[in-house]
Each structure stands twice: as C-alpha cells, then as structure tokens.
Design a protein around this nucleic acid. Structure first.
Lengths: 209, 209
DNA sequence: AGTTTCGGTGTACGCATGTTCACCGAATGA
DNA sequence: TCATTCGGTGAACATGCGTACACCGAAACT
C-alpha cells in the first residue's frame, strides 16, 4: 500500500477545497454548488459530507484558509530584511506581495471577489483584516513623521492610500496573465514611490495651489 | 383616472429594477432570482415577463443603467468650472464624485460588486469603462507634465493611481452610513492631494532614497 | 357600445439544489 | 482471522428555480 487511508482522505479534502476555489472564480462563494464541486472532484454528491458538515462549512474553510494566506503575506511584508530606506522598503514590499499572490493566486482571487461581493459576514471579516493592516501601517507611519504636520486623519489617509494601492496591485495580479506580472509589479512600485514622495513633502514642500 | 396604463407599466418596470438592485446587494447579480424580485415587487412571477424577456435581460438592463450613471459622473467630473489649480480641480472632482454616488448609490454599489465578482462579460464591461477613464486621464496628465521626466509608464501609473483612489472612495461611500460621508470625502481629498504632490515632485524634487 | 389590447393571475413542467438514509467494500485494529 | 471503522455509493425527499400556457378583467381604441 502506497497511501494510508488518512492520507487519501486528506487528498480528497484538499481536492474539494481546490475545486471550490476554482468554481468560485466564476460563480462567487454564494453560487457555489455542492453537486458542482462533487462532479469536479469526481465523487458522488453525498460523499462530500464525509469531509464537511455542510456547504456553509466549506465556505467557512475557504474563508479561513484564504485569510491565513493573507496574514502570512502581511507578516512577510513587515519582516525587516536589510535595506531600510523608504524606497528600499517599498520595493521589497511590492516584491513580497507579488511572490505571495503568485504562490496563492486562488486565495487572493477569492479574497478580492468576496471582499466586494461576498455574503455580509465574509465581506466584513475580510475588510476587518485589511483595516487592521491599515491601522498597523498608520502606527508605523506615525513613528516616521512629524506630529506637528501630520494629523491623525492625515495618517489614516496615507496608510489607507498605501494599502489600497497594494490591494489594487493584488487584484490586478490575480486577474492578469502571467506574462503581465512584471509590468504590474513595476507599475505598483512606481505608484508606491509617487505616494511616498507625496507623503515626504506633505506640508513641507513648495506650495502646490 | 389618475394614472394612464403606460404610466402604471413604467412604474412596475421601475419597481422591478429597484427591487433587483436591492436584492443584488446581498446575492450578487448571479444570484438574482425572478421569484425573489416578483415577491418583493408584489406581483406574481409570470407577470415579470410583461416587462422583460428573461432574467438575463433584467441583468443587462441593470448593467446598462448603472453604466449610464457612471458615464454621467465621469462627464461631470471632466466639466471645467472656474477654478483651475490642481488642488482646486482635485477638490471639485471629489465633490462631484460624492454627489453622484450619493444620488445613485444603488448603481455604484452594483458596479463595485459586479466589477470584482460579476459574470465575466459584466466584469469586463465595467472594467473596460474604468480603463477608458484611466486612458483619458493619462492624456490629460500628459499635457500637464514634462515629457522628459515622465515616461508613458509613469503616466499610466499616475492616472491608474488616481482612478483607483476615486474608485476606492466610491466603494467606501456606498458601504458607509450617511453620517460617514463627509469623513470619507475629506479623506479622499487628502489622498488625492498627496498623490498630486507626489506627481508634481516626480523626478524633480529632492532625492528621497 | 363593441372590440381589442394588455398587465396581472394560476397552473404546470423540467431541472438543480442541499440534505437524509441504508448500504457496500476495502483498509484498519484486535 | 474476525470485527470494526469509514470513505464512497445510489435512491429519495422537499424546495426553489426559469419559463410556457390559457385565462381574466379593466383600460384603450373605434
């Protein structure tokens, strides 16, 4: 015997999750059908219940493992690694983003779709996670800026701007063909640099009005 | 008689479209059900066919009238009106955006959701419209910038950044409670100013590395 | 006044959905 | 070797779906 029963079971469970992620791409989480994933996996519909209690439980599992991928990326982005100039941090952040989205494309695609159009509870869970990221970034920025020219609202505006930029880059990456990845990364780097230049000159550069 | 038959018919048609926009908020366009719409409107399911050929025709109508609202807003944003400084243009652009999203909240909510998670054809139609907007903005920017320091890719990066910022503001507006509108508008203005400052100092300001 | 138009009704059909139940057969443990 | 566990099977259910059809009654037209 080359495969124990537990391994086989785990393989089927994984196949169900992958099939569901795949199908969700076209129908959304709400339109996911038990019979559809069963057919795709190659099992009879009822066999599904050997792995999940219900269709909702499947959805919950998808949300959870996608959020795990998201958190893993955020952790990696915040990992300091040598270069410490703003531009250096920006470039490595974009690189880490691209790598993670590439490696877990299905998860990030799922998050992008359900963030905007998923069931209310899912939508809120994803948005909460991203908002936490904005808050973290705002506190990071607070340490790097002058409190006399940076109000709390300014900090929130800047961190939200950067996070939005990153989320957009991720959405573009999951939508695009592989050969467009480099262009998207390049564009994201340029955007991030523009925003950083704007932030560094915030109320300290020449008048712009 | 206080209401002609044609008026009554138009009223029912409008009620169907409004009910559909409402229901779509929770289920997405793909999850829209004829019977659900009929129940909400207060007619029997089959009466629906006096107004639309099929459920798909309803979806098409929703997409079309939402895109009309989007184009109306874009036209209004590009309407020159007095103040011509970058900051002035930015502020009035945000104001126009807020007004239009407020007046057609259902349409912009629909566009935000279906852009990310709708059927492929709908998704593509909405994205094409937004990309056209980016291209227009890029040509506008081209006239305002120095070709020696601004490459074509830089122009695309900047216009995409601004459009993303506006789309995000619109998404926040349709999600938020009415009393949060002013805060969101304020934040959007700040973000737009930051980006403009970044753009104005692009490769002409002090070194930032 | 008589006829036509037409928005709304009620019934019916075929199909897909989530979930349940009793059952089978092979891997597992004693 | 025998008993048990358990992933997968097939039939059945109630429900919801989109759509077609014949029909009704009042507004609209002649």
């Amino acid at each position: 015997m080359t495969e124990t029963r537990a391994e086989q079971k785990e393989r089927t469970r994984r196949a169900i999750l992958d099939a569901a992620l795949d199908l969700t791409e076209e129908t959304g989480l709400a339109g996911l059908s038990l019979r559809g994933v069963a057919k795709r996996v190659g099992i009879v519909p009822t066999a599904f219940y050997r792995h999940f209690d219900s269709i909702d439980a499947l959805g919950l599992a998808l949300v959870e493992e996608s959020l795990v991928s998201l958190r893993a990326m955020l952790r990696a982005v915040r990992q300091p690694d040598g270069a410490h100039s703003p531009i250096g941090i920006a470039d490595t952040s974009v690189r880490v983003l691209v790598e993670h989205v590439h490696a877990q494309r299905a998860h990030f695609g799922f998050l992008a779709r359900e963030r905007a159009a998923g069931p209310a509870t899912v939508r809120d869970a994803i948005r909460r996670e991203i908002e936490l990221c904005e808050l973290d970034l705002a506190t990071d920025l607070a340490r790097l800026t002058d409190a006399r020219t940076w109000s709390a609202l300014d900090l929130r505006a800047a961190s939200g701007l950067i996070v939005t930029l990153m989320v957009t880059a991720a959405e573009e990456l999951v939508t695009a063909r592989p050969d467009q990845e480099e262009t998207i990364a390049q564009t994201a780097r340029t955007r991030l640099r523009m925003v950083l230049i704007g932030a560094l000159n915030w109320r300290s550069g020449p008048p712009v009005g």
